[in-house]
Structure formats: C-alpha cells, structure tokens
Design a protein around this nucleic acid. Structure first.
Length: 277
DNA sequence: CAGATAACCTGCGTGC
DNA sequence: TGCACGCAGGTTATCT
C-alpha cells in the first residue's frame, strides 16, 4: 500500500524509536514473501545494534552495526509496527506476521504483509549498490537532481502515458498510484496524455508538483486510504487532503466538475476533466 | 528497444 | 448467509 510518503513517515518514526536499540532475538515466518524469498537471518542480526533507519525510494534500510543492513519493501499491503511487550497486534492479522525482531528494551518490530508482495532481506551495506532493485532506481523526487530539465529529457519521444512515466521507478523513485493522480491534478495535466506531447510548461508544473505533493503528504504522515497504519498503529492524515484519488463522481474542489475515473496502465486513475487537459 | 499485458497474493466490499 | 466478482497504495516476467 505504501508510496514514498508512507515509507518516509515510517523511516522517521523508526529512526526515533529504535535507533540505538540492539536486536536480541526474533523469528522469521515460514511462508516466503512472494517477491524475494526471506531466509532466516535472525542468528545473523542477533546482538547487532540498529544504527539508523534510512530510505531509498520505497525501500526502508535498517542499518545495523557490523556493516549489515535489513532491506525492506512493503509491497502493496505491508507494514512494520513497533510494539511494546503488552501491545496488541494493531488490528493486523498475526498470521501475516513474516518477521519479528525483539529489541533490548522489551519492544519488538513486526513486519506484516498479507499479500506477500513485499521484500525483506539482509545484506552487507557495502554490496547494497549491487542490489538490482536499488541500482535501477531513478533520482529521489525530493532531491535536487529531479528537475524539469531532467523530466523533460525522460519524456522526450516517449509514447507512454505521463502517469505511467511518473510511476516508473527508473524515471523517478517513489511516486505510486495515489500520488500520481494527485500530482497531475495539481499540474493540470490529464493522466492519459502521452509523455512526448506534454508541453514544456506542463512538465515544469509537474516537476514542481511532485515534491510539493509528496512533501505535504510526508508532513501529514502519509495517507491512509483503506487501512494502512504507521509503526504506532495510527492512520496517516493525508487522506482528507486527497483531491481526486478515490473521488469518482464527486465534485472537483476547484471547479465543481465531476471527477472521472479511467484505467491507465492497468491502474485506476482519477482526474478532473476541466482542470486537467 | 519501447510498450502492453499477465502474473504474483490475500482480503474486503458489493450485489445477487 | 453464501458466493461470485471486482478491486486494492507494487513490481516483475513475458509477450508483441
């Protein structure tokens, strides 16, 4: 479920709550995650300290002492919750807990993912850059190398719909289905437009909207559209700020025109036919 | 090569 | 209540 803002919110919560703690034990579930088989690496992380929690695109990087790092991707339905010894399961079905790390203060980190599209693996920090999934990623959307010039260059000659271009992690890393619709509303561009046909002025508006929308979502601690919860079991606050996503038939907040829903690249997309051309 | 499509999973809401 | 169906915030494999 999570896109960049949800992962970044998780990162910052975890960095404050578990950095400095030592992993004293845990367990890895029997069912493998679908995208990457998770071997039982509890013995390898036991006794190591969590130095910091970082992020690259939608990947969470839990850096451990001794040069190891736990790479986690939440897929469509994953979450990582930080629970104390007496806390419940945060409403998550324990049968989808795939990993649990016990910390030296009696709390634990739990990776839960019903659909098992996520990734959880342990690697050497030094070999992180060789990880295929990470090395293919485009620039961070909140970084200085994601610019209108860059986006214009990537859009040039491309027939793919602009919304698909924004969701292509090799172009820019972190935009997912919800925020792509929100970004294009703010930029005033229909999601179906072929990338090569998007004008320079529109590209500039999109390049500006990307960090704006993602930044505001991070401030709101992400979006809870259905049931996503952060590491404390709390929903994100950005859901109330979604202006088009999930609002088919509702009036556009800017002009009152009914919001439309179309499928672009197999994904539901929402737009205002008047505000977006 | 770019682009389109199917596939990987489980759960939930809807309508009959 | 049960059941079929459509839908879900991601990514990859496999076609044309």
């Amino acid at each position: 479920m999570p896109e960049l803002p949800e992962v970044e919110s998780l990162r910052s919560l975890l960095d404050r709550s578990v950095a400095g703690r030592t992993i004293v034990g845990g367990r890895i579930g029997k069912k493998p995650l679908r995208r990457r088989v998770t071997r039982d690496f509890i013995a390898d992380v036991k006794g190591r300290r969590i130095e910091r929690v970082a992020r690259r695109a939608k990947y969470l990087l839990i850096e451990l002492s001794g040069g190891l790092v736990i790479v986690a991707h939440l897929g469509m339905s994953g979450s990582i919750t930080h629970r104390d010894a007496v806390a419940g399961s945060f409403g998550l079905d324990p049968k989808h807990d795939h990993a649990e790390f016990a910390l030296d203060n009696g709390t634990r980190l739990v990776f839960n993912d019903p659909r098992r599209f996520g990734i959880l693996r342990l690697m050497d920090r030094a070999s992180l850059s060789t990880l295929k999934e990470l090395s293919a990623l485009g620039p961070e959307p909140l970084g200085s190398d994601f610019t209108a010039d860059y986006l214009a260059d990537k859009a040039r000659g491309r027939k793919v719909a602009i919304k698909n271009l924004l969701m292509d992690q090799r172009i820019v890393a972190g935009v997912g289905n919800i925020y792509a619709s929100e970004i294009l509303l703010r930029a005033g561009v229909r999601p179906t437009r072929r990338s090569a046909r998007v004008t320079r002025a529109e590209i500039e508006r999109i390049a500006k909207a990307v960090p704006q929308v993602l930044g505001e979502a991070i401030e709101g601690r992400g979006t809870t559209f259905r049931n996503y919860l952060d590491s404390r079991g709390e929903p994100g606050r950005f859901a109330t700020k979604l202006l088009v996503y999930g609002r088919e038939g509702e009036s556009c907040v800017k002009c009152g025109t009914p919001i439309r829903r179309v499928i672009v690249g197999q994904r539901a997309s929402f737009y205002c036919p008047k505000c977006q051309r």
